[in-house]
């Protein structure tokens, strides 16, 4: 695999993805669209929290929920951004077969297609965090943020999510029906098992181990800790582990899932080629 070809595949896919995602309307409406959806999701949780705690937003529980939900926007955006490209190109634009015969690397192309949603997701995360800090007393002190941990965790997490997206893209390639739901269903399931907005200890005992195997669990914990150190005390699920230990676990699980993703994508890609599924249009 030549680096120049990979870079070209990635760059053009990112540009194409951005055009598809953003040029259906004018920039203002696009900005509103990118912001309203995640803010509404956050507002549902804020109101639920406010109703039960009678507006006590000073507790450590609140930033735990709020930050977990804010960063979870990346999970849905990046994962489905990569896998949705298969549905979009194959079913909607009917161009996937042309991509396959073009001089590009398909996995790199698909990862590049996820960039657009990463960008819109980043805007949404930023707006959600800003709204929390400015209006809801989410106590993020910029001077006290552990920036190194934040940046390292963010990059590692995004890479991990992109690889999970590639895994989903592989499965999507060999799925004739409901492929559009795969990303959403996976993101929805991870929301439950990652302790995004509630601690794993709330889950039934028999479900909890699934959460401990999910890299997103550790990633969200690191994002919270990097922004507000003492938020880990809100729920003691991972409180016994230090930042470096959690980072190590995240790195290990990312490598594990990344390898699995490449493996699964290769298998699915071969099956899709053998069964003539690259240009399959189901109109389903």
């Amino acid at each position: 695999m030549q680096i120049s070809t990979s870079w070209r595949s990635f760059r053009m896919a990112a540009w194409l993805g951005w055009m598809i995602e953003s040029n259906w309307t004018d920039p203002f409406l696009f900005a509103v669209y990118s912001i309203i959806k995640p803010l509404s999701g956050a507002a549902i949780l804020v109101i639920m929290y406010g109703v039960i705690t009678k507006g006590n937003y000073d507790s450590n529980l609140f930033p735990y929920i709020y930050l977990g939900n804010a960063f979870y926007i990346y999970v849905a955006a990046v994962m489905t951004g990569v896998s949705w490209a298969v549905v979009d190109d194959r079913e909607h634009y009917k161009t996937l077969k042309y991509m396959y015969i073009a001089p590009i690397y398909i996995p790199i192309y698909l990862l590049g297609r996820g960039i657009a949603r990463f960008i819109t997701g980043s805007i949404a995360v930023f707006i959600t965090l800003a709204a929390g800090i400015l209006f809801l007393n989410v106590n993020v002190q910029l001077a006290e943020v552990n920036w190194i941990l934040f940046i390292v965790s963010l990059i590692l997490g995004i890479l991990m999510l992109a690889m999970l997206g590639l895994l989903l893209a592989g499965v999507t390639l060999i799925t004739a029906r409901h492929e559009g739901f795969l990303g959403e269903a996976t993101a929805g399931a991870l929301y439950i098992f990652s302790g995004a907005v509630f601690p794993l200890s709330v889950l039934p005992d028999w479900l909890r181990p699934i959460g401990y195997w999910m890299p997103t669990t550790y990633w969200l914990e690191l994002m919270r800790r990097s922004l507000i150190g003492n938020v880990a005390n809100a729920y003691p699920t991972l409180a016994s582990l230090g930042n470096l230990q959690i980072l190590g676990i995240l790195l290990g699980l990312s490598i594990l899932f990344g390898t699995l993703s490449i493996f699964v994508f290769r298998i699915c890609d071969r099956i899709a080629r053998e069964r003539g599924m690259i240009d399959m249009t189901t109109n389903y």
């Binding site: 639920m48 929290y49 705690t53 529980l61």
Partner: peptide
């Protein structure tokens, strides 16, 4: 998800 949020609270 939302049931577990309420349970956590």
């Amino acid at each position: 998800s939302y049931v577990f949020v309420y349970r956590a609270l």
